[in-house]
Write a protein that binds this DNA or RNA. Structure first.
Length: 535
RNA sequence: GAGCCCGUAACUCAGCUGGUAGAGUAGCGGACUUUUAAUCCGCGAGUCGAAGGUUCGAAUCCUUCCGGGCUCACCA
């Protein structure tokens, strides 16, 4: 038994629980049975109490509160539906079974069966005739206690350290029902988006995560290597170019909910891997896509909140269509910046005047974007579509039908956060080649995020792609807004963190140095072993 | 990458201008047959993020490092 090794560093609480584990076994209670007797959801019993009072019922879940009173014990079980109280009496269970309760802890999983009743103080409760341990917990959970003070719910305890909450999400989830709720909402958002697109004849597809050439966005990629092909592969930064190849192939409406990977900084709105919804519709342009985005967003807001208002960080907006649509140049003019020419020299002068740094190697479009971000973006409370970006910034967007300096593009903002980006997709292969070449020049001048030239994509366009509207939507950001989460980390179950230095000392001890090393050796030796092995 | 802040028991935190640690919850022991932050009595629990330095003496002061948060920058 490696138990002794685990004990010392983990402290007295783990030690006590290990002792109780043995106590359970000694009393003939299997601490980790394979199955559970059937049980009802806690909420079903509470809500259906009117009809169920006095009936035999069973519940199961995690022990989240425990109050012993000598020959009586009250505890609360929490399952996926909610909480319910269980009342256990020595008189009902018999002295021998009742004594087993001393080996229970907060955090254990338990099944209990008995009569449903209401206590003197009014709480719906199962008066247990029998119980079963379903799984023993060896580490203490920082379970919160709640009290009601003057009608307000006051929570004591819980897990506050954000680092621990993100790193040990299982604890965060186990202890905070509201965190579980965020991820249920996330799932509902995803389901709604699928339903919305499926209902409009979009086909859900899957395209490569590992790509020989990355593209579809301006970003630095993660690089990896395929051994058998002996070739460099990149984790996708976007699936755009693949989806548009499908348009060439005659799939007129496609979408993908894709994990994208960008080798960039991490902050409140950026995680290195994130979920992007991209959808493309043949015979549509960016105006059509604006309408579709409006419809989609108001639909998902209705789905989640029941209304059309969204509140985030103390601000409330109404997402009912139509949203404001403002071109980049108009917005700048409104902000007092009049841009006569999209030329490098006057723009640079303008940026300098505003006290902005002009990155070396920045083209006219980039400078315009800088000015925009500084003067306009912070004031965009939304919902709003910012449209018609300069060509240079949008190498995959079709030139604007009335102004060749611009493209037919929009970015959608809510609360100043950009959550969608869309174009009338560029389907002129010759223009696309020129744009790629311009990007290559930017790259040569040191822009690490310049788009790569993708010959196969150009070849695809040369076969002919219908006029198409396309949208990329940041799902995580959308979920942030829908759940009132201030950080993207609150809507990603396991956000990227710096690796923990080594393993926890007590876990090292539990596994044993030698065993850990063994395991690694075995894994590394495996391929060689199978080559020359018994088979 | 820059600035500010944080890291003390399982959890939430206190520890002033240096004298090697405290509270509540959780845990352990005891009392208690309708409690609900149950209550009452008692007890234990900590490489004070890490390493150096100053000092007779460091959780406390200094330096560096590690990890995190916020703001900014970067990032459509």
């Amino acid at each position: 038994m490696p138990l002794s090794n685990t004990q010392a560093p983990a402290g007295d609480q783990v030690r006590a629980r290990l002792a109780k584990l043995e106590g359970l076994r000694r009393s003939g209670e299997e601490p980790y049975p394979h199955v559970s007797p059937p049980a009802a959801p806690a909420r079903a019993l509470v809500e259906g109490f009117g009809d169920l009072e006095g009936s035999e019922q069973a519940v199961r879940g995690r022990v989240v509160a425990f109050r012993g009173h000598g020959r009586t014990t009250f505890l609360h079980l929490e399952d996926g539906s909610g909480r319910i109280q269980v009342y256990l009496r020595q008189a009902d269970l018999g002295a021998e079974r009742y004594a087993v309760l001393q080996y229970l802890d907060l955090g254990d999983f338990l099944w209990a069966g008995g009569t449903l009743f209401r206590t003197r103080s009014g709480e719906i409760t199962v008066q247990a005739r029998e119980f079963r341990v379903l799984a023993k917990a060896l580490r203490p959970l920082p379970l919160a206690k709640e009290e009601v003070v003057g009608g307000a719910r006051v929570v004591h305890g819980g897990l506050g350290d954000r680092e621990v909450r993100y790193r040990r999400r299982y604890v965060d989830l186990a202890v905070h029902a509201e965190v579980r709720e965020v991820f249920r909402t996330r799932a509902r958002v995803l389901a709604y988006l699928r339903r919305f697109l499926d209902g409009r004849d979009f086909l859900e597809v899957e395209t490569p995560v590992l790509q020989p050439l990355y593209g579809g966005a301006a970003a630095r990629p993660f690089t990896t290597h395929h051994h058998a092909l002996d070739t460099t592969l990149y984790l996708r930064i976007a699936d755009e170019l693949y989806l548009k190849r499908l348009l060439v192939g005659g799939l007129e409406r496609v979408y993908e909910i894709a994990k994208d990977f960008r080798n960039e900084g991490i902050d409140r709105t950026h995680n290195p891997e994130f979920t992007m919804l991209e959808f493309y519709q043949a015979y549509a342009d960016y105006q059509d896509m604006m309408s579709l985005v409006e419809e989609m967003v108001v639909g998902v807001v209705r789905e989640i909140t029941g209304g059309t208002e969204l509140t985030w960080r103390g601000e409330t907006v109404d997402v009912s269509p139509p949203w404001r649509r403002v071109s980049m140049l108009e917005a700048l003019a409104t902000a007092g910046v009049h841009v006569a020419e999209i030329e490098r020299t006057p723009l640079e002068a303008c940026a300098r005047e505003l006290g902005l740094d002009v990155p070396t190697g920045a083209g006219a479009g980039k400078i315009l974007d800088e000015i925009f971000k500084d003067r306009v973006e912070p004031a965009l409370r939304g919902p709003v579509f910012v449209t018609d970006h300069p060509r240079e910034l949008s190498p995959l967007a079709k030139a604007h039908r009335t102004d060749q300096r611009l493209t037919e593009r929009f970015e959608a903002f809510l609360f100043g956060i950009e959550f969608a980006n869309a174009f009338s997709e560029l389907n002129d292969p010759l223009d696309q080649r020129r744009r790629f070449e311009a990007q290559r020049e930017l790259g040569a001048r040191g822009d690490a995020e310049a788009h790569a030239l993708d010959e196969d994509y150009l070849r695809a366009l040369e076969y002919g792609m219908p006029p198409t509207g396309g949208v990329g939507m940041g799902v995580d950001r959308l979920v942030m807004l829908l759940t009132g989460s201030p950080s993207i980390r609150d809507v990603i179950l396991f956000p990227q963190m710096r690796p923990e230095e080594g393993r926890l000392p007590d876990e090292d001890d539990a596994t044993g140095e030698g065993e850990g090393r063994d395991r690694q050796t075995r894994r590394e030796g495996d391929p060689a072993g199978s080559e020359g092995g018994a088979c």
